[in-house]
């Protein structure tokens, strides 16, 4: 995967491996010291079951480690995305 601009990722649709639409990327949270991306902030789809994920206000947080692919869509592994 090539490097991408954060501005290009913002607004992209997030789908799970199973093909469920989760919502659109709103923001990303990173560690200031290391630059490691911690979470993906997603504006959830109206039909999404938010209870499975970490909810912050009207957004849901998904660990960046669950992201499988970043291209036309952001593909997320649902098993790693749900809160423990």
């Amino acid at each position: 995967m090539a490097k991408v601009y954060a501005g290009d990722i913002a607004g992209k649709a997030v789908v799970t491996i199973e093909g469920t639409v989760m919502g659109d990327v709103d923001n990303m949270i990173f560690d200031v010291n290391t630059g490691i991306l911690v979470d993906l902030v997603i504006k959830p789809d109206a039909e999404l079951n938010r209870q499975k994920y970490r909810v912050e206000g009207k957004f849901i947080l998904v660990p960046f480690s669950s992201v499988c692919a970043v291209r036309d869509y952001i593909v997320v592994d649902d098993n790693r995305a749900i809160k423990k």
Binding site: M1, K3, V4, Y5, A6, G7, I9, M28, F30, T34, G35, I36, L37, F64, S65, V67, A69, V70
Partner: peptide, 15 residues
């Protein structure tokens, strides 16, 4: 700062 460059493979902000 206009934008951040992301390396999705490593999961880091690269620039």
């Amino acid at each position: 700062v206009d934008d951040a460059v992301i390396d999705p493979e490593q999961g880091i902000v690269s620039g």
